[in-house]
């Protein structure tokens, strides 16, 4: 027993000799500070909140608003889209409410249609005149949000590129997410997503802790047994765990249907899917895109779900994307 005690003292002394103990919720310790905590970050005050936002190009050119996925991811993984600024477009990036480096919000602040209202406010913030055309480029959840907005305001949008939206009705999203998260029971990916729960837990309002775990779960996206077929890990700033969880809960409780008015949007939509995402595929792309009356389907070769983020997918997609926007410019 004496030996055990001595060993314990020695181990304790070794640990205590290290740096001072840290706290999980210390701002900036595990996830970056958001715009309301770090004034050096570019931001815009709209819709009663503060969005982390950046723009590229001439503000008088046609606008392309880039919409990231998640909900809760950030626009860092879509920064390739800056390339449209060199082609005569004003490219707007913003981290959606509660996502990335934008200000955090509590669970009660989220509603199904709040992201749509935020997008409307962001467009109003940047649009110089009623004649300035506005295009949307949405990826995954961002493509769903783009569709929700077009369904509500078809007259405001001059065209849209949609990259693998899960669906425009809740059932289609559930089907896709079920396939995308079909990890092997004996695989490392499932373990990586679940084993951490005994090391770190956060209260319902411990944003930094929940966001940190959300960031760590992102490691599963490029795992070898993930069906979504990405080339590697996506770059990110901060995953918004609260907005992600709440939006899924709200969708599950209330459902949504963003196709009821799409027949009024007769402009051609460029609907992009990837060759390597086994959970998506041409069949799902055709099913989801059929809600639009005028669709150009484009298969991005040599890419997975995040086809706009990695070099091979981007190089394959960009000429077609640019051609699409130029035709509607």
């Amino acid at each position: 027993m004496f030996r055990i005690f001595c060993f314990s003292l020695l181990l304790g002394a070794l640990i205590s000799g290290c740096k001072k103990e840290l706290s999980l919720d210390e701002p900036g310790a595990l996830v970056p500070k958001t715009v309301d905590k770090d004034p050096s970050l570019p931001s815009i005050p709209v819709a009663g909140t503060q969005f982390h936002a950046e723009t590229f190009g001439n503000p008088n050119d046609p606008i392309i608003v880039v919409l990231h996925g998640g909900p809760g991811s950030d626009y860092r993984y879509l920064l390739n889209c800056k390339a449209f600024a060199d082609e005569g477009y004003f490219v707007v990036f913003y981290d959606q409410r509660g996502s990335g480096l934008s200000k955090r919000h509590n669970k009660s602040d989220y509603k199904i249609d709040i992201m749509e209202n935020d997008l409307d406010a962001v467009i109003d913030y940047y649009r110089k005149s009623p004649d300035q055309k506005v295009f949307l480029l949405g990826h995954s959840w961002g493509a769903m949000l783009a569709t929700a907005y077009i369904n509500a305001h078809p007259e405001k949008i001059a065209g849209a590129i949609l990259g693998e939206p899960g669906g425009f009705i809740w059932q289609d999203v559930q089907d896709y997410v079920g396939r995308a998260q079909d990890f092997k029971l004996l695989g490392e990916t499932l373990n990586n997503a679940t084993y951490l729960d005994q090391f770190i837990t956060g209260h319902a309002d411990d944003h930094a802790i929940l966001d940190y775990k959300f960031n760590l779960w992102a490691a599963s996206d490029d795992a070898t047994d993930s069906p979504i077929g990405n080339e590697g890990p996506l770059p990110f700033w901060r995953g918004g765990a609260m907005v992600n969880r709440t939006m899924f809960e709200l969708a599950d409780q209330e459902g949504f249907d963003w196709v009821s008015n799409l027949h009024n949007f007769t402009t051609k939509v460029l609907f992009v899917y990837s060759a390597n995402n086994k959970a998506y595929g041409e069949a799902h792309a055709r099913k989801v895109s059929s809600a639009y009356p005028n669709v150009q389907l484009f298969k991005t070769e040599d890419a997975g779900h995040d086809m706009f983020s990695f070099p091979r997918g981007w190089q394959h997609f960009f000429p077609t994307g640019l051609q699409y926007f130029n035709a509607l410019k």
């Binding site: 640990i15 999980l24 310790a29 595990l30 996830v31 005994q198």
Partner: peptide, 28 residues
């Protein structure tokens, strides 16, 4: 989970350069 030592890898630090390694107490 009383005390957890976290050491971030290069993949995380590429995304969050300010992430701090060390003993976090308590963690859940």
């Amino acid at each position: 989970a009383i005390a957890t030592h976290i050491r971030h890898g290069a993949a995380y630090l590429d995304n969050v350069p300010g992430a701090q390694d060390g003993w976090y107490v308590p963690t859940g």
